[in-house]
Write a protein that binds this DNA or RNA. Structure first.
Lengths: 70, 70
DNA sequence: ATTAATTTATCGTTTTTCGATAAATATATA
DNA sequence: TATATATTTATCGAAAAACGATAAATTAAT
């Protein structure tokens, strides 16, 4: 029925051997807010934040977001 | 410098031979708002909307969003 | 020319981000 | 163990933005 969007920020952080706090600093948001994004509790994302995430992790939106239908 | 996020909804619509109006209906937003998303004028996206887009177009977020650095 | 589809714009309401902050929890390290 | 560090969770408030409703303008198709 209804699928869901999965955040794979944790996967990219692991690949880059980077911590959440460092990523938060690079993106320019607080670690607390980055944690919300990482753990999939965000209900929306600003395009500017997504762009900065891609920049900081040198990746594509598709590396950070995944659609899983169940 | 700063990269940008590109929306490829138009590409997916073309692949699916689907119109913007039909997509809007399937996703449950007005054609006017879908146009804003499609033309890259949105400054944020709700995760729920992204999920419905993926559902309606049977695709992944990576098919709809692209990061281009310049 | 007429119809349909898409885009652009504005208003008001609701939702959400995000900073700031604090506290709780987990993880690592001496 | 104790201590420091990292991550998560939660709350508040302000600013930003989605989105519906709506109308008008523009474009495409017939």
């Amino acid at each position: 029925m209804e699928g869901e969007i999965i955040f794979n920020i944790d996967v990219m952080l692991a690949k880059r051997k980077m911590g959440l706090t460092e990523l938060a600093q690079r993106v320019g948001i607080t670690p607390a807010n980055m944690s919300i994004l990482k753990t999939g509790k965000a209900r929306a994302v600003r395009i500017s934040t997504l762009a900065k995430l891609c920049e900081a992790l040198n990746c594509q939106p598709g590396d950070l977001l995944e659609y899983r239908k169940e």
